[in-house]
Amino acid sequence: MSGIGTFDLLFFGLTTLLVLLGGIGTVAAKNPIRGAMGLLTAIVGIAGMYLQLAAEFLAAIQIIVYAGAVVVLFLFVIMLLGPQATTSAGAAGTKVSRYFGAGVLLVTSVGAMSLLWRTRTEIAALPKLPPGHGTIEGIGRELFTTHIVPFELSGALLLVAVVGAVAVARGKQIDPTSAVKVAVAKKPTKQASGEAEAHTAHAKEAG
């Protein structure tokens, strides 16, 4: 612990606080916009942690991509759905499963805590970083030499995910010409069933 100065500790405390408060805010907020803001706070905190770990590039990316793009996208979606949109919380069926889930989470997190405590001595101090680690040049060199395959593979993964999303979403839309046909074909049956329902309703009234 000798290598850590007071400023480092203070900074770490601050970022941890940001992440924790942001996380709690995200989960606990009733208003989805406040939840998104909580997420933003947590993301900024994590960016601070990256800075402290000498990963300046990652810190910048964290702010640009997550805070700048992802949270804004969340906000767009929330705005489109309307800020009043809520989940169907509190229904009778979900209450039991919620308590069950909370119980499982409690048990596992207590177990994880105790394991963390037992393993606190096993994690050795991190090695000294080479100069230039975490800068744009350093990351670029890594990405295009030793880690070119994972880099390309993540590109392929993202592309495939987009193609898959389009394939699934587009299939739901029927060809406009066939949609007309289906609508025409369906109409009579709908009327027929409507009449049948009316008949049964009459029959019930009569009964």
Binding site: V149, S154, A161, K172
Partner: peptide, 26 residues
Amino acid sequence: RNLLMIYLSLEIVSVISFVMAGLKFQ
């Protein structure tokens, strides 16, 4: 032979499996 590669290749397989499972439209 690398944890990152294991994760990425596993994820490629998973993502496409999701898509293929949903290919029966309607």
